[in-house]
């Protein structure tokens, strides 16, 4: 397989690069997903064991993602025919239907645009990358895993919950936060706000470290 240059890396908080690509659901543009959250993820190759476990795991959180207005989009440098054959094989051997489209990035255009190829690991395959893109097309989170290590889809759901909570309530979320846990009130920007903060009834360890409960 032809070696590919590593390409650029998208940056958090910036517009996700637009693309048009062939997928198992026809030709799709990134902008087709406008108005929905998108989890775009790459895998090294079809018909490989770790990737198969990941596809099954992504299919299993598909309904939960739909409830959160999140679409899934897979990608590898295999062909549409290979993707279709693999998806059919997963259904036949594991009884799991893959409901989301998968990009056939044979020319590596999208992989390079999103920096999915890590030449130190593999010059020809995409690493296990995840890009969370919000309804306005902004890159909100990125996760990179090596070829050997399958991703944790529970963490992806948790990440979506955290990002959506941040947007809805203008708060931050602490380590290992789960929906229902207390959230972090953003630190005050002025001395006056810091003094007011201590009178606002939050659970504060100090002026910079305050938590609150979210309404029901």
């Amino acid at each position: 397989m032809e070696e590919a240059p590593a390409g650029t890396l998208p940056r958090l908080g910036e517009k996700a690069p637009e693309f048009e690509a062939m997928t198992t659901h026809g030709k799709l543009k990134l902008s087709d997903f406008r108005g929905s959250w998108l989890v775009m993820f790459s895998h090294p190759a079809d018909f490989t064991p770790v990737c198969t476990t990941e596809f099954i795991a992504f299919a299993k959180i598909y309904d939960e993602l739909q409830k959160r207005n999140v679409q899934l989009l897979g990608l590898s440098v295999d062909s549409v025919s290979s993707h279709i054959a693999w998806i059919r094989n997963i259904e036949e051997k594991f009884g799991v239907k893959i409901p989301f489209p998968v990009i056939a990035d044979l020319d590596k255009k999208v992989s390079q645009l999103y920096g999915m190829i890590m030449p130190g690991e593999s010059k020809t395959e995409t690493a296990r990358c995840v890009f969370v893109i919000d309804p306005n097309g902004i890159v909100r989170a990125m996760i990179y895993y090596p070829l050997t290590t399958g991703r944790n889809t529970d963490e992806i759901l948790r990440l979506i919950d955290a990002l959506q909570t941040t947007d809805k309530h203008h708060v931050a979320t602490p380590a290992n936060w789960r929906p229902g846990d207390d959230v972090i009130v953003p630190p005050p920007a002025t001395q006056e706000a810091a003094e007011e903060r201590l009178r606002e009834g939050y659970e504060c360890k100090d002026w910079y470290f305050c938590k609150k409960k979210l309404p029901g």
């Binding site: 659901h25 026809g26 030709k27 799709l28 543009k29 087709d32 997903f33 929905s36 679409q71």
Partner: peptide, 12 residues
Amino acid sequence: LPLFRVRSGLRD
């Protein structure tokens, strides 16, 4: 149908 599928289908 999901909106992204409708948009791409209408384009086709």
